[in-house]
Computed example of a mutant assay.
Amino acid sequence: MELARTVALLDRWLEEHAPGDFRQLAPPAESAQAAAVTENRFQPHPDVLSWLALHDGSALDPRSAAGAFVPTDFPLLGAAGMRDGLREMAEEVARAQEEGEAEYVVGVMADVRWLPVAMNHTGGQLVVDHREGPGFGAVLELDPSIGLDGVKRWDSLSHLLDSVLDALVHGTPVATAGAGGARNVPRVEDTGNPLPHVVWDLYYS
């Protein structure tokens, strides 16, 4: 499904069922900010620009538990967060090259063409792969806390949002990137503070 249409449907679902998450959605990023997320290192993938043209991230208040409606508990970044995340990627690659560790880091734990688009509270990241080849545009997961190094999770940012929408509307489980056949199943948590918001429960086969 076209990303803009998916996000419109997702927005409506969140507004009705998970208003805490809906209120965390930022307005569109300024076009100049969106275009500058990669600081001219490469052209941002069209899905990235489409997302930023609709919402400059999903965590207006980063202290809130709401806004993390992507499994597993990822808030989506805005333009500034993407830019800063890419700078950190480039710094990690430069450090690895300087210390002779490039083969263990570049394309494994960090890459100058991996654009972070989400980050969770454990330091895990979702990145859009901008390297040329069949994986261009894919969404990879990195999480050193559980040993995930650039594992593909979705074919694209559009595919990610399609799977989230399907899971929220139909209760469809979403596979994790790790081993063991685990599945993430969404539910709406309503504790009164913050407002009702999506959480993901993990189940093992």
Rank of each mutant, 00 (worst) to 15 (best):
M82N: 09
P44C: 06
A110Y: 03
G57T: 13
A177F: 00
D73S: 15
A79G: 11
L60I: 14
T38I: 00
A175D: 07
G81S: 05
H170M: 06
P71F: 11
A118E: 07
S163I: 02
G133V: 03
E91P: 00
E132H: 08
D162L: 05
M109S: 11
G171Y: 00
L165V: 08
P134V: 07
L126G: 04
A175Q: 10
D73N: 10
E92Y: 02
N40I: 00
S156W: 03
L77R: 09
L49G: 06
G133D: 03
D162E: 14
P144S: 12
L76G: 01
S58I: 02
L165M: 11
H159N: 14
V105T: 14
E132Q: 09
G137W: 00
V164Y: 05
G171A: 11
L77N: 08
Y104R: 11
L60Y: 03
E98R: 14
M119K: 14
P134E: 12
M82C: 15
V105K: 02
G67M: 04
A175M: 05
A102E: 15
V117S: 10
A94I: 06
D149I: 04
M89D: 05
F69L: 12
F136D: 00
A66V: 09
F42C: 12
V117A: 12
D73W: 14
E103V: 13
L49K: 09
F42M: 06
G107A: 02
P71A: 15
N40K: 01
V108S: 05
A102I: 07
S156T: 10
A167I: 06
T172H: 13
P116F: 15
T122V: 12
S163L: 05
G81F: 01
S163A: 12
S145L: 07
A175T: 11
L165Y: 12
A175G: 08
S158T: 15
L157R: 03
V127D: 07
H45E: 13
T176V: 09
R87M: 01
